[in-house]
Design a protein around this nucleic acid. Structure first.
Length: 202
DNA sequence: AGTGCGATTGACT
DNA sequence: GTCAATCGCACTA
């Protein structure tokens, strides 16, 4: 694998307005993290959409100190702590003032794998960023990145990938109880880097 | 001011 | 397969 690639950011105008469409669009795109030790990147293989009127969405009951970044224009980072243990990376969606977003659930590691191993404390490639909390740990993502514009170069941004994503599967979201039946999870079929039980693959 | 609960993970039976 | 850890925050009063 080559290193030191340029990774131009994805323009905001390329991001679909609709949240579910954005979740699908982001499959196969890159998350790029600029760390002091070097560049870390991965290909997005799993996302979940938290859409308008969605009781499972953090923005459902309006803006709060925690979720205000969800209400930014599409393409900004919403980072929060889940279960007091794991950071979660989301991409805000829709127009400014609408509290919706896309959870990035899993990456296929590309660059900076040694750095990811160090951040995670595990060796196995498959386990470095399989799951939203693991992904955030591998990229050392925390609340200091909340609200960041992901459509420009900085500590963290979104980029295109040279190669096409595989076939995209769709299913129910993981770990929620409200609006749990909606098919708002997207993933690369057959990718070993996708999280969740095998019963949800297919 | 007190309380209950997660968009998870890793350890364990 | 089950389950505890852990804590910020939203909700109730």
């Amino acid at each position: 694998m080559s290193h030191g690639e340029d990774h131009p950011p994805i323009a905001r105008s390329e991001l679909p307005d609709d949240t579910a469409a954005l979740a699908r669009f982001l499959i196969g795109k890159l998350v790029v993290r600029d760390l002091p030790e070097g560049m870390v990147s991965g290909r997005i293989v799993e996302t979940e959409a938290y859409v308008v009127g969605d009781a499972a969405g953090h923005g459902f009951r309006g803006m709060t100190p925690r979720n205000r970044s969800l209400f930014l224009e599409r393409g900004h980072a919403y980072v929060y702590l889940a279960y007091g243990v794991s950071m979660m990376l989301n991409v805000s969606s829709e127009a400014e003032g609408i509290g919706t977003g896309v959870l990035i659930r899993a990456l296929e590691p590309l660059e900076g794998i040694a750095i990811m191993r160090q951040n995670r404390g595990v060796e196995r490639l498959r386990d470095l960023a399989r799951g939203p909390g693991r992904l955030a740990a591998a990229l050392r993502i925390d609340r200091s990145l909340d609200g960041l514009d992901l459509c420009r170069k900085g500590p963290l941004w979104l980029a295109k990938d040279g190669q096409k994503a595989g076939e995209i599967g769709q299913g129910i979201r993981i770990g929620i109880t409200k609006d749990a039946d909606r098919l708002l999870r997207f993933y690369v079929r057959g990718s070993p880097f996708v999280s969740g039980p095998r019963s949800l693959q297919k």
